[in-house]
Structure formats: structure tokens, C-alpha cells
């Protein structure tokens, strides 16, 4: 088992990288790897409530975020700086996530065995 950290840095729906990153994260979790997800920059917008991906021609891959618990993905970190930049708070998010300073995220990256960025 490895400690894998998956970082998301792209906005929802404009590109497919986040969706393919989520696929990777869920699969890794089902292969019993220890997962930590980090949402930073525009990727924090993936966590907003009431999204309608179909209107943008995208599959709804964000609803599955609510099932992170089922996959034993307990560590979901949201970059505090990025949330603030967009005027958002944890209350705006559809799932319970941990507000993380840059220092906390830096430590996560150091601790992980591997880090994949999508």
C-alpha cells in the first residue's frame, strides 16, 4: 500500500483532466491505497453545491464526490488561499472537506509516497 496524493488544479468541465483524475483516485482507493485529495486554484470549484455538469456537455462526475467516504477517502483538503480568492467558504461546498493552508498542503506532498496532479 502506498500513500498517494492526488492534486487537482484545473477548473471543472473546461477540460477532462479532473474527471480522469477522479477516476484514478477512486480506482486507487478501491485498490486499497491510502488516498489524499487536494483541490487548489480553480479546481476548488469542483466542490460547489448545485452544479449541473450536463448543461456544459459533461458527464456528472462531481456527484460521486459525495461518495468519497464509501471509498475510504477521508482526507480531502481544500486550499484556503484559493477558496478566499473566489470569495467562497466551506459552507458553499457540497461535501465536508478540510480547509488547508499552503503549509499543510506542502506537508501532505512531502509525506506522500507519490503525488499525481490533474
Amino acid at each position: 500500500m502506498k500513500h498517494i496524493c492526488v492534486v487537482f488544479r484545473h477548473a471543472p468541465f473546461g477540460a477532462t483532466s479532473s474527471r480522469e483524475g477522479i477516476d484514478f483516485a477512486l480506482l486507487s482507493a478501491s485498490f486499497e491505497q491510502q488516498l489524499c485529495l487536494v483541490f487548489t486554484d480553480e479546481a476548488v470549484l469542483h466542490l460547489l453545491a448545485d452544479q449541473q455538469p450536463e448543461l456544459a456537455g459533461s458527464k456528472d462526475y462531481v456527484s460521486v464526490f459525495k461518495a468519497f467516504d464509501l471509498y475510504d477517502i477521508e482526507h480531502v483538503l481544500v486550499c484556503e488561499t484559493s477558496l478566499q480568492r473566489f470569495g467562497l467558504t466551506l459552507e458553499d461546498l457540497a461535501i465536508s472537506a478540510q480547509l488547508a493552508s499552503s503549509t499543510v498542503i506542502t506537508e501532505q506532498l512531502q509525506q506522500a509516497d507519490e503525488v499525481l496532479v490533474f
Partner: peptide
């Protein structure tokens, strides 16, 4: 192959 190949490869 499946994404599992990537996960086991990383492992």
C-alpha cells in the same frame, strides 16, 4: 489495460 495497471505499477 485498466487504470489498475497504473496503480499496481506505482506500488
Amino acid at each position: 489495460g485498466g487504470l489498475g495497471e497504473l496503480v499496481t505499477g506505482i506500488e
